[in-house]
């Protein structure tokens, strides 16, 4: 009986809140719209960065897992024994033997002019024999290289340490930029929400004063404003998500068709994209609610 009464009361309360929020949004229509748009723009930029970050990290994975370890050998190394030992290491996927002659040819090709290496053939060849090893996972590469260096007959084991390092540095910068710009935009949007809610508190000042005399609880007074802020957050998020999906879809489709961009494979799997969009929705909601709460603390002393 008692809980029944409580539920009924909550239901009436909820209906009242939604009506109040709707009326407020109607009254402050243009301001609410502008606020939602600003939230949308900031979430779009933020979301854009997020998608960029997801793609960059994917690219990093690709680059790293394509990294080959070059194992250079001493002239007197036992190649067959080494091939077996390398194959036995945990995480090694493929190994390919590159003789010094092949290595020189490769080198010539890389330089673009085989003539440049003509004097270096045969006895004069400065290159050692080598194995080229790929790993099953990118993060195994550094340890594997380490292990290979300890094997007898191995002079050096190198992988694109510099390249990987540079890429890591770059993604670090991008992530920092993302956080900074995102924070600034979110702050701006929250400030706008504070202003909008404040105006709607002002518009209903008289009503709020009367509510106090009628015995309304603090939350009864506050809740509609909170709903209002969150509604603006959602509206902004929905617009931002729709725009991002449209733009990203287009870009991804173009890149996938473009033969020159074959190395850029945009992330399209839902498992990776869904967290981005739920994250945005969560962020929009939090921004709306947070802005309202600040405003209520400042302008609504019940």
């Amino acid at each position: 009986m008692k809980s029944e009464g409580l539920t009924a009361m909550n239901f009436n309360f909820l209906r009242y809140c939604l009506r109040q929020s709707r009326d407020s949004l109607k009254r402050n229509f243009w301001l609410a719209l502008v606020t939602s748009c600003i939230i949308a723009v900031s979430l779009m930029i933020f979301g854009g960065f997020l998608l960029l970050a997801v793609n960059i990290s994917q690219l990093m994975q690709d680059v790293q897992s394509n990294v080959e370890i070059c194992v250079f050998l001493y002239d007197d190394a036992d190649k067959d024994w080494l091939a077996e030992e390398l194959q036995r290491l945990e995480g090694v996927e493929t190994i390919r033997f590159v003789s010094k002659e092949e290595g020189l040819e490769d080198f010539g090709r890389t330089l673009g002019d085989a003539a440049l290496v003509t004097g270096l053939q045969g006895e004069n060849n400065p290159l050692p024999d080598a194995f080229r090893v790929t790993a099953s996972a990118a993060e195994l590469v550094p340890q594997l290289a380490q292990a290979m260096r300890r094997l007898e007959g191995v002079e050096m084991a190198e992988y694109g340490e510099e390249l990987v390092g540079e890429l890591l540095k770059l993604t670090g910068w991008i992530n920092r930029l993302l956080v900074g710009v995102g924070l600034l935009l979110a702050l701006g949007a929250v400030f706008l929400i504070v202003t909008t809610i404040r105006l709607s508190v002002m518009a209903r000042r008289e009503e709020i004063g009367i509510m106090k005399y009628l015995g309304a609880s603090d939350w009864f007074v506050r809740f509609p404003f909170l709903v209002e802020g969150i509604a603006m957050g959602w509206l902004g998020t929905i617009v931002a998500t729709a725009a991002l999906v449209a733009v990203y879809g287009k870009v991804a489709a173009t890149l996938q068709q473009d033969a020159f961009a074959f190395f850029l494979r945009p992330v399209t799997s839902p498992e990776q994209l869904l967290p981005v969009f739920t994250g945005l929705l969560l962020l929009g909601t939090c921004m709306g609610g947070f802005g309202s709460l600040i405003s209520l603390r400042k302008f609504l002393r019940v």
Binding site: A8, N12, Y16, L214
Partner: peptide, 11 residues
């Protein structure tokens, strides 16, 4: 009606 809405009464 406002006086009763504020108390969460049913319509």
């Amino acid at each position: 009606a406002f006086a009763l809405e504020v108390l969460g009464k049913a319509p």
